[in-house]
């Protein structure tokens, strides 16, 4: 029973980790309608920034968020403005895919050039301290991720539903042409959204960096799972992404324990492929948005 609780807790912790990475991805997905294949590399950039700021300046990893999140916002905004926006009207969606794949390749290799192949360890700063909560053990850093992922989801939802800018973002996603007629500057909304999505990854990276070693390939590791989460939760659904992340976290944790740790990914991607093929609208979306699927 205790083992079960421990595996369950691990799953939830892993889920919140996936959630905080996936939230920005689903936002960009849902609003800009672009699949950002470089999302994982944004995370990597954020983690390296955290590493550099903590080791060179000696500040607490969490404090770096005031620099890392804006930096990532800028990275996202620039990506949208100069890479995606010129391609928005391309009738061939290959072009957009290749654009972000190119960005991802360039960023991975840039990291290799700058930091080499060795891993970079951000100081733990007490975040790897185990806590004993009844029968289960977990790290304080994991709890921070859980709290932060919930906070990010709630803040984003409030922003989108309560503010005029947030409503404008939703309006653009639901009917781009009508949004333009309302006087919404659609290009600017896209830049803003991409920036916010990337800033969310910035928040994720300062939380993850103290717990996981940073390397040029870390983005690929997380982003594939994040894609699974986003498809599972329904494209563009922030709440859905959170729920999807929890499910994937639990599958990962239980599959790792009961099937074998080396087959965890097979279970996760198996679920992904099943969802993609059988219920492409995701598990939690009420309205069908199947522009990516033939009838």
């Amino acid at each position: 029973m205790n083992t079960f609780l421990q595996v369950l807790t691990n799953g939830i912790m892993l889920g919140s980790l996936f959630a905080i990475v996936a939230v920005g991805l689903t936002l960009i997905f849902g609003i800009v309608k672009v699949v950002n294949f470089a999302h994982g590399e944004f995370l990597m950039v954020g983690m390296y920034l955290t590493y550099v700021l903590t080791t060179w300046m000696g500040i607490h990893p969490f404090a770096t968020v005031i620099l890392v999140a804006p930096a990532l916002f800028l990275l996202g905004a620039v990506t949208q403005r100069f890479l995606i926006q010129p391609l928005m009207s391309a009738d061939d969606d290959h072009i957009q895919i290749f654009a972000t794949v190119g960005l991802s390749t360039a960023l991975i290799n840039l990291a290799l050039l700058v930091f080499g192949a060795d891993i970079a360890s951000t100081p733990a700063s007490g975040l790897r301290t185990p806590l004993q909560l009844g029968p289960v053990r977990l790290l304080s850093g994991q709890v921070a991720i859980l709290v932060a992922s919930i906070a990010v989801v709630v803040v984003l939802q409030l922003f989108l539903s309560r503010t005029q800018t947030g409503r404008a973002i939703r309006a653009v996603a639901q009917n781009r042409a009508a949004a333009q007629l309302m006087g919404i500057n659609v290009n600017w909304i896209y830049i803003l959204t991409f920036g916010i999505g990337a800033a969310c990854v910035g928040v994720a990276s300062v939380l993850i960096a103290p717990l996981y070693p940073t390397s040029s390939g870390i983005g690929t590791y997380f982003v594939l799972t994040a894609f699974v989460v986003v498809v599972l939760g329904g494209l563009g659904s922030i709440g859905g992404a959170f729920a999807g992340a929890m499910i994937i976290g639990l599958i990962d944790s239980f599959a790792g324990f009961y099937i074998g740790s080396d087959l965890r990914e097979v279970a996760v991607f198996g679920v992904f492929l099943l969802i993609l093929i059988l219920k492409p609208s995701g598990l939690f979306s009420s309205r069908l948005n199947l522009s990516h699927v033939s009838p």
Partner: peptide, 12 residues
């Protein structure tokens, strides 16, 4: 301009 086909924001 009030566009052809209403063009509301359906989920709002």
């Amino acid at each position: 301009l009030i566009p052809e086909g209403r063009q509301l924001f359906p989920d709002m």
